[in-house]
Amino acid sequence: MTLTGLFVPLITPFTDDGAVAVDALHDLAEQALIDGATGLVALGTTAETAMLTDDERASVTEVCTRVCRAHGAPLILGAGANATAASMDAVAALDPSLAAALAVVPYYVRPSEAGVIAHFTHLAAVSPVPLIIYNIPYRTGRTLSADTLLRLAELPNVIGVKHAVGGIDDTTITLMSTRPTQFAVFAGDDLYASPLLALGASGAIVASAVVATAPFADLVTAWHRGDSMRARTIGHRLAGLTTALFAEPNPTVIKAVLAAQGRIPSPAVRLPLLPATESSLYTALAALKAFSAAGEQKSSGVLTAEMPR
């Protein structure tokens, strides 16, 4: 099984009184698929999963599952943490109809690379769905070498990696040039999505795509079709927008923009995150307006909003 294309990691919208805004989540999920996303990612970092209750996680999963089934689209679900035993329990309980589980490299405890391999070997053995490894060393504190990534790629039931290492480094080049053909590499850093797609990435899992789904879908398609001129143009235009959307911890600015667009009822996030500052919101809305003015709005359905006064 190989997954390709754009998968949009959804935020979890909240109402003014702090509850999960189920209707807004449904609309975000549906609009992402209408605008060209291949599928969705639920309960990732962008969803503030660590700050949700078990009941809220179940509600988010139900909404995203229902929307994906209605559209015949694949759903990837975030699962697992830094403890192997607990992660095994979590993935073992997953619905077999899911396209895959996105499982993060164990964080904080900083295991050896051999420990990381052992962790995913155990998870893959019990998971009823394929695993995508989430490699994000600036969050986990655990850098993985190319040799380790290639060993992980050989594990049964491991089908890919969300690669978010903060740039295009030597490890990335080695991985892209030597990975097994069926092992999917998803661009996981919004700013570096275009360069990684240029190197042959299977697709992208990028938070900014909830704000600009169609342009990111076009970016993936253009690189896959070999239309480098169009792909570079879209990638350059998206760079300013993604930089602005990540000016503060994800997903604070993204939520502020979505609220300003009227797509979610509130820009609220849960502690220890704080809402985006007005300055960051203003900059992001200006970047979105500039992106639209560059010619993408008409063809890609990017939504705009009035800047705060």
Rank of each mutant, 00 (worst) to 15 (best):
A99W: 08
T233E: 14
M1A: 13
I76C: 07
P249S: 15
K162C: 06
A99S: 14
V302C: 06
I133C: 02
A79L: 13
A29H: 01
H71M: 02
L199E: 06
I254N: 08
L288Q: 15
E296T: 13
I264N: 07
D170P: 00
A19S: 12
P156H: 03
G295Q: 10
G141H: 03
A114Q: 14
A93S: 14
P106W: 09
L150I: 03
A193L: 06
L43S: 14
A90R: 15
S112M: 03
T65M: 12
P195N: 05
A21K: 04
A164L: 05
A19M: 08
L273G: 07
V104T: 02
Y134C: 03
Y282A: 02
A58H: 15
H236V: 15
S177R: 11
L144V: 00
Y134Q: 02
L245W: 07
A93I: 12
A187H: 09
V257K: 08
A207F: 06
F183E: 06
A287L: 03
T12E: 13
S300I: 00
A239Y: 06
R309T: 10
L191S: 10
T304S: 12
T45P: 07
T252N: 05
Q261M: 11
T213H: 12
D23R: 14
A214Y: 03
G235P: 08
P128T: 08
A70Y: 04
F120P: 11
L155K: 03
T65K: 12
D54G: 06
A256T: 04
W223L: 01
L6M: 09
F246N: 06
V211H: 00
L258P: 11
L149P: 05
A231I: 05
R69G: 15
G301N: 12
K162P: 11
Q261L: 01
D27P: 07
V63G: 08
A114F: 01
R151S: 01
G301Y: 04
L197I: 12
P128F: 05
A284Y: 01
L6Q: 04
S228N: 05
